[in-house]
Amino acid sequence: MKGSVFFIGACTVVLAGLALTRLGVNEYYFFAGYVVLQFVVLATAWNILGGYAGYVNFGSAGFFAIGVYCSIALTKAFSLPLPLLILASSIAAGLIGLATGYLTLRLRGVFFAIATLALAIVLETLVSNWSYVGGAAGTFVMRPKTVIFFDSYVEFLFIVMLVLAVSSVVIARTIERSRFGRGLRAIRDEEVAAESMGVPTLKLKLLATTLSGALMGAAGAPFSYYVTYVDPPSAFNLSFAVNAVAMPLIGGTATWLGPLIGALLLGSIQQIATVTISSELNLLIVGLTLIIFVIVAPDGLVGAARRISKWVRGN
């Protein structure tokens, strides 16, 4: 796909979303769509580090929650507008990513994975003890009463998340085709050789961790307006972390398309399933799908599709 075609496509998606809000579609669809798009951001962000560089982050929920609570704190202190909250949240989450990465990325990749896993739990401890943002009891967040252009605040949030989702996919695709992306791929393939061939491995890994964390933080920033009541278990929900890993692995980690397909597919299925079956069963399906894909189709749906098309052409 050529750059210009891709860019026009990305703009069209946003415009189509805007048009949808003028058509008087049932608000429920925007409510559900928001969650799916949120997963697009998380999965795409995860893949920048996990898929391109091969470093697994299990703490996506932690980075997401940094965004959630950074935005709550700033709203309480200064009542900033949402775009500024998103910016501040992504900076905060990016910096925490940078710090964690700096301490652990020089070691074997598994230590980074373990550190991210533990990071989410500790951040949850800190937030539970931080009474300003509601502590363990949680806090209510008032949505602004009116919003320009849109009929409802949920429609506005939907468009905000759509813009974030499209932007992250654009960022991921840009990275993939850049010198930075080729360096990450070399790290993923064979890190020692990459370093000895001139790839500044630590610098690139830190950059990827920061960017990935920042996008997750951005995804968390509007969350409190979406749910209007936030407590630590909802912001640090393990389902964010599991889905952020499962969606790229199911879609395919090599390209930007994999996490996008994985998130749209798995996200939509979960939205439909929550209505029809219990949410536990729903999460069980996600977990089992992850395990099955990791064993059977390690390169995901995109990889499987490529192999099938190669095979068809070969015959």
Binding site: G50, G54, V56, F58, G109, V110, A113, V242, V245, A246, L249, T253, G287, L288, L290, I291, V294, I295, P298
Partner: peptide, 10 residues
């Protein structure tokens, strides 16, 4: 290692 880790996570 990525796949093994994801497996145990699942």
């Amino acid at each position: 290692p990525l796949r093994g880790l994801a497996f145990f996570f699942g």
